[in-house]
Design a protein around this nucleic acid. Structure first.
Length: 491
RNA sequence: GCCGGUAUCGUCUAGGGGUCAGGACACGUGGUUCUCAGCCACGGGACCGGGGUUCGAAUCCCCGUACCGGUACCA
């Protein structure tokens, strides 16, 4: 039996990169050890949760390739996997705690608690629940019950020290005096986070809890609950948080925080996974570009560092570029095509494509463009000159390369040569361009640059001869002649 | 405030009582070249501060500082 681990997001927002990384670590751990990855939706906060958010989170996980063995849509023997459907269990557990003397009813009003806290705060002190309801006389309780006074259930924190060995941080101890008698079941009969996680982790037989560092301080409460419920605590591993460039907790201010957003911006799931895996975790050697298989093989909780990590978009960009460079053409094209379609650039091709297989041509284009793209979305702009016949000339390009004296004649000569060139392949096109330049007594570079501007309108493009061949003879000649005319009108 | 965590190039990190403190991103220089990108080579750049322990500390211990998290009838 392998370990049972879980990822338990609350659907109050989209899948955050921090959550995604926690999910990734958890998933890697399960896959590494032949365990079970459970997905549980913590939607007890009905007000803030929504089914749209759930769908978004599932989509995000699927996009990253993090498949779950048990959970929404997958089912499993420990369901239901939505906390909102498990309320009876929490209430039963809370009742059991009361019955066992581990918890007690609390009738204190939120106003009173708030006032006490404020009062203490004014004196610069922290206030902890004073156990006012722990020793309520029976007749007082009877009276309160008679009027059905709202009551919450508080956990009676024992005076023993709690300690545990965190898989990432090592031994951690807590003084019980720092922990107040926290509420486990609210007066509205909804559980607090502490109760629901523990009950669910027990029910779902979770062996390892891998979660964000922000839960480290809650862990003693959870351990106390596991004990009170008669269960053994799972192994805990608290992974450090992801910060923004200013070392503050990553938030909208830092730009994109949801994986959906990164997907939209043109990042490949493989790159995202690879990048996230290396944020806070290291295989122990110098490897950086790692396939999912390699990640699984090398993953261990010990490899996770103790400190928070800054989300470095530049490195993500680099890594994405690496993935774009390595992805098989078919896959890359399949990923890019929808973007071209959305931009209205495809299918929308010139005459040449009537005789060429369109997909093969697109493959060549994508291949030509890929070393220049860090994100998929960049393909749209890069591909534009190839997919539309309206050449937009960049002013600087025109200034720099089309204002050469006598250029019209040179370009016209090149157009004439190319018109009859057959076959129209790279070596011949190159020879034609260089030959024309030589005949006309100008440097090849001058003609090359002018031609580039003529056919793409831009200062930069892939290698010119490859561009011309891909464009085809007719479109090349047509664009060259357009420039010849342009230059003629100008002078 | 109290409790907990963390601290190696700007960033992600490896390492760990004796190393030229290694790699990657970013940056700089050069090469390839028709431009850009890419690719290749080279370069600058770090052990938070102070005390201990030790022949020797960046590494172990303590204190401090900074940052992060928690301190709710949020999760």
């Amino acid at each position: 039996m392998g370990p049972r681990v879980r990822f338990a997001p609350s659907p109050t927002g989209y899948l955050h990169v921090g959550g995604a990384r926690t999910a990734l670590f958890t998933w890697l751990y399960a896959r590494r050890h032949g365990g079970t990855f459970v997905l549980r939706i913590e939607d007890t906060d009905v007000e803030r949760s929504s089914t749209d958010m759930v769908a978004g989170i599932l989509d995000g996980l699927r996009w990253l390739g993090l498949d779950w063995d048990e959970g929404p849509e997958a089912g499993g023997p420990h369901g239901p996997y939505f906390q909102s459907e498990r309320l009876v269990r929490y209430r039963a557990a809370a009742a059991r705690l009361v019955a066992g003397g581990h918890a007690y009813y609390c009738y204190c009003s939120t106003e009173r608690l708030r006032d006490e806290r404020e009062k203490a705060e004014q004196c610069g002190e922290a206030w902890q629940y004073d156990r006012a309801c722990l020793a309520l006389p029976p007749e007082r309780i009877a009276k309160l019950e008679a009027v059905a006074a709202p009551r919450a259930i508080r956990f009676k924190v024992p005076a023993t020290r709690t300690a545990f060995d965190d898989a990432i941080h090592g031994r951690i101890e807590f003084d019980p005096r720092g922990i107040e008698d926290f509420v486990v079941l609210r007066s509205d009969k909804y559980p607090t986070y502490h109760l629901s996680v523990v009950v669910d982790d027990v029910d779902m037989a979770i062996s390892h809890v891998i979660r964000g560092d922000d839960h480290l301080s809650n862990t003693p409460k959870h351990i106390l609950l596991f004990e009170a419920l008669g269960a053994t605590s799972p192994v805990f591993a608290h992974v450090p948080l992801i910060l923004g460039a200013d070392k503050k907790r990553l938030s909208k201010r830092h730009g994109a925080t949801s994986v959906t957003e990164y997907r939209r911006q043109g990042y490949l799931p493989g790159a995202m996974v690879n990048f996230l895996a290396l944020l806070g975790w290291s295989p122990g050697d110098d490897r950086e570009l790692m396939s999912v298989t390699e990640l699984i093989e090398s993953f261990s909780l010990e490899g996770i560092g103790g400190g928070n990590a800054v989300f470095n978009t530049e490195k993500l960009d680099w890594m994405n570029g690496q993935y774009i460079a390595r992805l098989p053409v078919e896959e890359l094209t399949a990923a890019v095509a929808p973007l071209l379609i959305d931009a209205g650039l495809w299918p929308n091709v010139g005459v040449d494509l009537q005789v060429r297989p369109a997909d093969a041509w697109l493959h060549r284009l994508v291949d030509l463009l890929r070393p220049r793209a860090k994100r998929l979305t960049e393909f749209v702009d890069l591909a534009r000159p190839f997919l539309t016949d309206t050449v937009e000339y960049e002013p600087e390009a025109v200034d720099q390369h089309l204002s050469v004296p006598g250029l019209g004649g040179h370009v016209a000569a090149l157009a004439a040569t190319l018109r009859t060139l057959d076959p129209f392949d790279e070596p011949r096109v190159e020879a034609a361009v260089r030959g024309t330049a030589a005949e006309r007594g100008i440097k090849a570079g001058v003609l090359i640059h002018a031609t580039r501007v003529a056919v793409t309108g831009r200062l930069a493009s892939p290698g010119l001869f490859e561009v011309l061949v891909l464009l085809g003879r007719e479109r090349t000649v047509e664009r060259l002649e357009r420039v010849v005319n342009l230059l003629a009108t100008r002078t």
